[in-house]
Amino acid sequence: MRMDPKQFREYMLIYGTDILNWPEDMRTPGLKALKSSLELQAILEDEERFERVLRESRYEDPDPDLAERIISASLQKEDKRPYSVAGFFSDIFWEFGMPNRALTAVSLSLLVALILGFAIGFFYPSGAISSEQNQINLEAFLYYEGDVL
């Protein structure tokens, strides 16, 4: 594969001036072409100067405690998470989505027990008086009242 100056320039823009970093199938033709062409060598020098200018672009290192700050913020965010109905239900389902099967089984058992408790309480309320019992109570009252009077 022969490489003309236009192709060489394009590859240089795409892959950079270090030809050893070019994809394998372009590297050898690129190096060969460079060795035998003064024009390509001039293109390479021009591109290297341009890359040096680009590397002058300003860069500031992050604060050394950036990672620590993020970890601390994760603690705070968790405590101060605003309440929302969607978030509440999402949290419930997230708990059930945990891969810990034992925890999920215990949670489900407690939920079933709670539902059964409500159902029993609804159909057989302990404070309720049947109509038969009500009649007996009324008769006892009337009898008791009559006796006194």
């Binding site: 992050p62 604060d63 950036l66 700050r69 993020i70 913020a73 994760s74 965010k77 968790e78």
Partner: peptide, 19 residues
């Protein structure tokens, strides 16, 4: 192109991941 903004953005991204 801003140190403070870049730090805030990285923090926000990690907090999204945490939540």
């Amino acid at each position: 192109s801003s140190k403070d903004d870049a730090e805030d953005i990285v923090q926000e991204a990690f907090l999204k991941l945490w939540r």
